[in-house]
Amino acid sequence: MGKNDKSAGVKNQKADQFQALVAEHLDALYGFALSLTRNKAKAEDLVQESVLKAFRFFHQFERGTHIKAWLFKILKNTFLTDWRRDKRHPESLSMDDEESNFSFYVEAFRQSKASPQDYLPPESLHEQDMEQFFGDEIMKAMESLPMEFREVIFMCDVQGFAYADIAKILNIPIGTVRSRLARGRGMLQKHLWQYAQDRGILKRSA
């Protein structure tokens, strides 16, 4: 076997190993990219750019560690680099603190001065009801969140990452992960609350 053949063989082996490890996480990465970019074409580009970057630095990946978290971190950093390059940032981080305290149920109770069960009875609030009531509105609500909140909710609620993993991926303290989750979820609830009221799913207070 010639020197070139041997080198090509090693390269193929590395590519095969890499593909075998990342293949199962590509849809999750795509979902994450979509949640960040809110645009299919940009999300596809972002996944490709991030995975190629991961392949270039594959020798730095420690075998046996959390590859999904490693890929998410690369994708987030790649997104941020592109995002910073683009001067048009419509999103702001300034948030009203009252958002974090908003509770769908507490608000229903306060406004109605009746039992929340009169409005969305817990016993009948099944999965189908949520989908039927809110449908695409949940996605709209997610997309309306500033990136900092959208990404932690995606990682925690959709992908099931632990707080510690999210903290590592985003390079922020665990306490910040917790507070961003609480604030983001509060905003999500508030959006759905408004929608439910507008559609008469929840009665307005008299």
Binding site: A28, S35, H126, M130, I138, M139, D157, V158, Q189
Partner: peptide
């Protein structure tokens, strides 16, 4: 259930 819906949508 909200979390469940989010999972379904994004997965």
């Amino acid at each position: 259930h909200l979390r469940d819906c989010l999972k379904k949508i994004y997965r």
